[in-house]
Amino acid sequence: MTSNAVRRVLGALSLVGMSALIVLATAGPGSADTPEPRNGDWEPKPDIDVLEALLVLGGIPLLVFVVITLLFVAPALARGEDLSPDALEPENQWLGGPRKAPDELAAPDTEDSKAGGAGGSW
């Protein structure tokens, strides 16, 4: 390996190491528990019901999903569009098909013809 490659590898490893060190150093306070109450300074942890947790963690995302879907589908339904999977197939189109402009170059007639613009061979 050349010295430049070694420097790049060592630089990348040092960045990864520093990132890991920063993550580990800041993770400690996040795992702290609520201290024991003294003189009314701290309130005890609130008890969370399982049903309440399911409603908050499942119901709110489901509600957001339904609202976004309705915002997307409602205008099409108001216009009377068919939203079935068969109706979403595009019509047959010829994109970039033949043009009828008089200033276009003519297509080549034979193998030896030079008409039609650019050409190339191996």
Rank of each mutant, 00 (worst) to 15 (best):
L57T: 04
D109F: 07
A5T: 09
L10C: 11
V67Y: 10
L95Y: 00
G97F: 00
L51N: 13
M18V: 14
P85L: 11
L88F: 07
D47W: 06
R8W: 03
M1E: 01
A27Y: 04
R7Q: 10
T34A: 07
P98H: 00
G17Y: 01
L95Q: 05
P102V: 01
A74C: 05
I22Q: 04
A87N: 06
S14Y: 00
R8D: 06
P35G: 03
D41Y: 09
A25V: 14
T69K: 07
A87I: 02
K100R: 08
I68E: 01
L13C: 14
D82N: 14
E81L: 13
L24N: 09
G120K: 14
V50A: 15
V56H: 03
G119Y: 13
G97H: 09
I60K: 03
K100V: 07
D112R: 08
P61Q: 01
E43M: 03
E52C: 02
R7N: 12
V73Y: 05
E81R: 14
D41C: 07
I48P: 00
T69C: 09
W94I: 02
L62I: 13
P102N: 02
S3Q: 04
A32Y: 06
A87F: 08
G80R: 01
G11A: 12
A12I: 09
A101S: 08
E91K: 08
L105V: 06
F65E: 04
R38I: 11
E36G: 03
F65W: 15
V23I: 14
N39D: 13
K114Q: 09
F72L: 15
R38T: 11
L77Q: 07
L54V: 12
V16N: 04
G97E: 06
D103K: 05
R99E: 14
M1K: 04
N4M: 01
G58F: 06
D33V: 11
L70W: 07
N39L: 13
G30R: 10
K114I: 07
P46Q: 08
A118R: 12
P29N: 02
A12E: 09
N4L: 06
A107P: 00
S121Q: 15
K45C: 01
P85W: 07
G80A: 07
A12F: 10
R79C: 04
L21K: 00
F72T: 07
P98I: 00
L105R: 12
S121G: 13
V16P: 00
K100S: 12
I60Q: 05
L63A: 15
P75N: 09
D41H: 13
G119Q: 15
P90L: 09
A25S: 12
R79W: 02
P44F: 07
P61F: 05
G96V: 00
